[in-house]
Amino acid sequence: MMDKMIRKLVKLVEESDIAQLEYSSWGRRLKITKRYDNDGYHHRAGTPTEVVIHEPRYAPPPSPPAQAVSLTPSAPTSATESPQKSDDKYKAIKSPMVGTFYTSPEPNAPPYVEVGQIVAVGQVVCIIEAMKLMNEIESDFEGKIVKRLVENAQPVEFGQTLFMVEPLG
């Protein structure tokens, strides 16, 4: 993405009521987040603005670029989580969405996975419920579940680590 355009978008965010702006084009994602004072409400000129660019993992599709801009209202940011410290040999299964974490398909059913269990690629490990829509979360890799980091029925954030997995082989 061109630097000029990023600068333009950053300026747009800084000079407006927008707290966060995500822009995607050709599979690249740009996220601009305005930082807030401790009281959370008012942004003062000169407060740093964070810019994150995600490069596409795959080649963009040959179809015309899908463009999407989503605006998030100016609002206090919730306390940012400190990044999950993890041993290098473990991999994390992260939540792809904001929602409520459930270990099992129904309240009285046994959990999808237990600590110590081996999971396969594509195996369902938990459910994240968002506004009553159940999302089954699958493991992206084969390995042994070494830790569950979220209690049943607790809210989770986007990108929050749910399980630590020790990869096999």
């Binding site: 009521d17 989503s70 209202p73």
Partner: peptide, 26 residues
């Protein structure tokens, strides 16, 4: 207010669109 803001942010993530006026009303 903070929870309502969180809820609004969540809704935006889920594809809802809102408009804000100059006094942050929605």
């Amino acid at each position: 207010t903070r929870i309502v803001n969180d809820a609004l942010r969540g809704l935006v993530v889920w594809g809802y669109r809102f408009e804000f006026d100059s006094s942050s009303r929605v």
